[in-house]
Amino acid sequence: MTDLKADDLNIEAIETLMTPKALKAQMPLEGSALESVRSARQTIFNILDRKDPRLFVVVGPCSIHDPEAALDYAARLKKLAEEVQDTLYIVMRVYFEKPRTSVGWKGLINDPFMDDTFQIEEGLKLGRKLLLDIVSMGLPASTEALDPISPQYLQDLIAWSAIGARTTESQTHREMSSGLSSAVGFKNGTDGGLMVAVNAMQSVSHPHRFLGISKGGQVAVVRTKGNPYAHVVLRGGSAGPNYDSVHVAQAEEELRKGGVSTNIMIDCSHANSNKDPSIQSLVLKDVTHQILEGNQSIIGVMLESNINFGNQKIPADLKELKYGVSVTDACIDWAETERSIKEMAAKLKDVLPQRQTP
């Protein structure tokens, strides 16, 4: 006999995680926090159904690396949300998973201590605790659904989900999204093309069957009903920005031809700002102007924002991290966030209730 084998040749180890059921038992969603999530989802559904004339605004850090700073940001955002609630519905970006083009820090869940120890179970615990704290404030939370397993641990706390430009074309993510309990926004492709998002929206509205895990941690066949609340997120691409009125009109036409919802969300960051955070406010002004000029399709916007401006590299000594500064994409600071959102709310206050369904 020989010791030759054919599987796990490149596997160093397999570590068993606590089950989704066990984590939720430790940190249950209940009471006012549960009602907050249910109410937030319904509000977003109503906006997408044009029963609520407000825009929803997904705003917050590119990624979460410091839960303390995230709660500081959330408290500020909650106060702002109350001030503009007649016109804008504020949802906080609480992104724990970051897709990487090649290599790099993959987010709080994957490497919560930012030291390459990859203590994923601790990351899941930190993530769930933070989300519970945020929704307990009455502030809705959003995230990017990247890993197909983590939604079983966290998705019950999420009011709106994004599928990123790199994964909109993925069959795995389309199938997963068909079973998400929240509305889901599909970003256009990294080249700026819209067809991958149109195809994704067609796919996600239908039932699917695929391999996943149960809340008890068992491998299972997941059978979904289909998600009726998918929409497109324009984020620009390698060809340039696509937030202007011409690109929006072209998107409306492609969405109509594809037989899917013409609801459009504008991502003010990423390629739409050429990765320059200072341009985000200008994009927001342009979107506001489009609505003032009669646009009917834009139902939401997204901003990458943090307590302080810009971004930073992760230092070898984590004590050198600057407070409230992104470690991934550069963000606008809190002062600019507050100013821009209040300005948009003031300009659109009397206009949004008059909009018609496109």
Rank of each mutant, 00 (worst) to 15 (best):
E338A: 14
D49K: 13
L234H: 06
G189C: 04
L321R: 15
G193E: 11
G240T: 13
G236R: 04
V58C: 11
R235A: 03
V351H: 10
V91F: 01
Y323W: 12
I47L: 02
G192K: 09
H173R: 02
E82P: 07
A40D: 09
K21V: 01
F56W: 07
A13I: 12
T87H: 05
V103L: 11
A197N: 04
S150G: 05
S170R: 06
N274S: 15
T168P: 06
S177F: 00
I14F: 12
H247P: 09
G192D: 06
C268R: 04
S181N: 04
I120D: 00
A75F: 10
D66C: 09
Q155A: 15
E82M: 11
R223C: 06
A81F: 08
W105L: 08
Q290Y: 13
F45T: 01
I341Q: 09
H231T: 10
P20W: 00
L157N: 03
L88T: 05
E30D: 15
L77K: 04
I149E: 05
S32Q: 15
C268A: 14
F186N: 00
A69H: 09
R93T: 04
R355W: 08
F309W: 15
I120R: 13
N311D: 11
I163T: 08
N10C: 12
P358C: 06
V233Q: 00
E30K: 14
K24R: 15
S136W: 14
E304L: 07
A70P: 06
L348N: 00
L211S: 12
L180I: 07
D115I: 07
E83C: 03
Q202N: 14
A162D: 08
A230K: 00
S261P: 11
V327W: 05
K51W: 03
S273L: 00
P67E: 02
M27K: 14
M114G: 04
M1N: 10
E254P: 01
L352P: 12
R174Q: 12
S39G: 02
V351C: 06
A33C: 05
M18C: 09
A197R: 02
N308K: 15
P207T: 07
H289E: 15
M18E: 14
A75L: 15
S273R: 05
Q155K: 00
V327G: 08
G258C: 01
A13D: 12
K5C: 12
E121S: 08
A162E: 13
K215I: 04
Q356Y: 13
S261I: 01
V248A: 07
W160A: 02
A40Q: 10
V283R: 03
L321N: 05
L292I: 10
I314A: 09
K5A: 14
D72R: 14
I158P: 00
T224Q: 00
V91A: 04
F96G: 01
R223I: 07
